[in-house]
Amino acid sequence: MASQGNEKARVYIINALKGLEVAPLGQDYRHVFNDKAGRDGANVIGYIPGTDFPQQYIVLSAHFDHIGKGARVIYNGADDNASGTAALLAIAEQVKQTPLRYSLILLFSDGEEVGLVGAHAFIRSYQALLADIKLNINLDMIAGDRGTKKLRFISKGVDSLLDKQGLKMWARLRDSARIQVKKGFKSGSSSIARGSSAVNNRIRWRAASDHYVFYKAKIPFIYFGVGTHKNYHTGNDDFNGINREFYLAATASICRQIYLLDRLMTN
């Protein structure tokens, strides 16, 4: 959170948003917060106004933090979650050129790895917007490893935004992607290295990333990811370990889905 590496990441994201001429949501791109444990952090938040419903929002989120350094290893986090962070910037570039009907909030969250604290801070700070947030789309680990073949997702509440025909159209679009887009995640465990040991816990996918905070706030969500893989939370999660062709196709598929959902959602 309040580390030199995190600040470098924030500066990179902010400069990228400025280069795309994406405005901040408020006066500043940095959304500074202090969590319950007294730790300082800062999200980065961008905003692209919608053409038809500028006062209603889709929140596209990805966390930019990672575990950092262990005793003898650096966790570079290429998939977890540079993949989601870079995808947000790519999608922002597209949406800036061709805006959505609904306004798009780009939430680059801090502190996901230590309890989703950046997403919690966003919800606390923007209570006045919550009733107007139609949907959260959260991207966390969408590049996988070299053997990854499927982009997975879970969702809750989307049926309140789309009618039956819209749900069918969304399913057909997923099925037409160059990669397999499958509902649901395989059961797995989270292994987080701490010193010379590891903490293993079964993964509850609904609560596995920032989308859970939106779910608790009764906001519909879609979470895209690939699930766990051999490089997850290890020192091998670097650029050379990801499935680059898959990642580009996954990002393109998610972008197409965002445009379709934006078009089909009922106001």
Rank of each mutant, 00 (worst) to 15 (best):
Q127G: 07
D140E: 15
I137R: 05
R39P: 04
Y259D: 03
G26V: 10
G5K: 11
A121E: 09
L261G: 01
L89S: 04
N136R: 03
G46C: 06
F108A: 07
Q55V: 00
I133F: 03
K183I: 00
D175N: 15
R204E: 14
V117K: 10
A16E: 09
A252Y: 07
E21Y: 07
L116H: 05
H63Q: 13
S190F: 12
E245G: 12
D145Q: 08
I242N: 07
A131L: 03
T148V: 14
V114H: 00
H66K: 12
F214G: 00
S155A: 10
A87M: 07
Y215L: 11
G26K: 10
R174N: 15
V11W: 01
H233L: 04
L260I: 12
A128E: 14
Q127D: 12
L100W: 01
G115F: 10
H63M: 13
A87E: 08
V22Y: 00
K149A: 14
G118A: 02
A249R: 10
Y215H: 13
P99N: 11
A87K: 05
R202Y: 09
G184C: 09
A131P: 01
V199S: 15
I133H: 06
Y47M: 06
L161E: 03
F185S: 08
H63G: 04
T228H: 03
P220N: 01
G241A: 15
S187T: 13
N81H: 08
T251H: 00
Q56H: 10
H66L: 06
A193L: 12
G70R: 13
I48M: 01
N81K: 09
R10W: 02
R101I: 11
A92Q: 06
R174A: 13
G50Q: 12
H63D: 03
F108L: 04
K164T: 11
S109L: 03
A217M: 08
R194T: 14
L135C: 02
Y215C: 12
I67H: 14
I137H: 02
L100Q: 04
S176V: 08
G166W: 01
N81M: 08
H229F: 05
